[in-house]
Design a protein around this nucleic acid. Sequence first.
DNA 1: GTCTATAGAAAGATAGAC
DNA 2: GTCTATCTTTCTATAGAC
Lengths: 202, 202
Amino acid sequence: MTMTRTRSKPSAKREAILDAAQRLFLVEGYAATSMDAVAAGAEVSKATIYAHFEGKDQLFAAIMHRRCEASFAFASPDESFDAERTFTTYAERLLGLLMTPDAMALYRVVVAESARTPELAQAFYETGPIRGKAAIAASVACLQARGELATDIDPLVIADQFIGMLRAETYHRALLGLPEGRSVAKTIAAAVQTLMRAYGKR
Amino acid sequence: MTMTRTRSKPSAKREAILDAAQRLFLVEGYAATSMDAVAAGAEVSKATIYAHFEGKDQLFAAIMHRRCEASFAFASPDESFDAERTFTTYAERLLGLLMTPDAMALYRVVVAESARTPELAQAFYETGPIRGKAAIAASVACLQARGELATDIDPLVIADQFIGMLRAETYHRALLGLPEGRSVAKTIAAAVQTLMRAYGKR
DNA sequence: GTCTATAGAAAGATAGAC
DNA sequence: GTCTATCTTTCTATAGAC
């Protein structure tokens, strides 16, 4: 009752600040978001923000952690699926996540700040991409053990290549705010086909 | 002799401004680079910058065009190469280009600004990535015609997937400023192998 | 913890002389 | 075209009352 650790008590104001900051950072970007705007959005005074967070940097870091934790909670496909269906399911889930406006906006800001704030980029990479990749690699290893995929290739390499193909043209255009090129469905189908032709055992 | 079109006369001051701006934008990022800093770097007054460029936006756009034109001048591999060697050569040239600190810094800024300046992202995409992709797709079509690659696949799809695999983990980590994971050489070898296993005709 | 009010610095852009 | 000097705005951060 006497303790008041900053992190443990999610006061209403604190949550309001986080919500407003998330909305603004992801829509406007880091530099273009002012603390005044966050204060206005949270209907809170600026001084209150500084009572809860050390500064703009820390506030953004808090947002990023929150988003990554929420986003990359990644259910694996059913283990009874064959290789093709496993890949397809992963692809749909991954792109469904990555193509979210929020996820793309977060990624834009992380990329932009990575040159000046490597810790941020590292935290992002470890709570985000690495977990997705590990999940896919684990499934690949499982499929290899079952004899559905060739075994003379590192599961991590397959996972990287798969994610790379999924993040090619279609995702890339969306990230840059350009009109859609190839459809997501075609991108997925093509990536799955390539991996199956290269490493499938049927 | 009487004409003084802004673009045609590359005055020394103008070049100095562009050089200083390029260095600063790519190292510090767009937002973190002030016009004062550019002026100081170019040893020129701020007013002179505004005499040559409409504002910060236009200045950055000029930098980006200059870089893209210079970077993506992309020689195709020898036509006598087989598929494997063609892919490998492209991969080395492409990653040699993309992994340049300058190229990564430019890409970071373009990504960051794309949400607020779509024209910039579009100009980048068209002077940069699209040209690289078209060059690779053309070579793929040529290899298909020679019977070295399967013909039941769109050359553009192969080009996209190839670039995607090359830009996966290794490049991605570098972009985010993280320590190197897999080596560039291994990434290239693995991507070429996957494409050859899937679509090679030997 | 929360507010009002403001400090203090830095930014983008321009006026006017030469 | 180029400069010096300055305007105006906006930003992060804080002091001090409650």
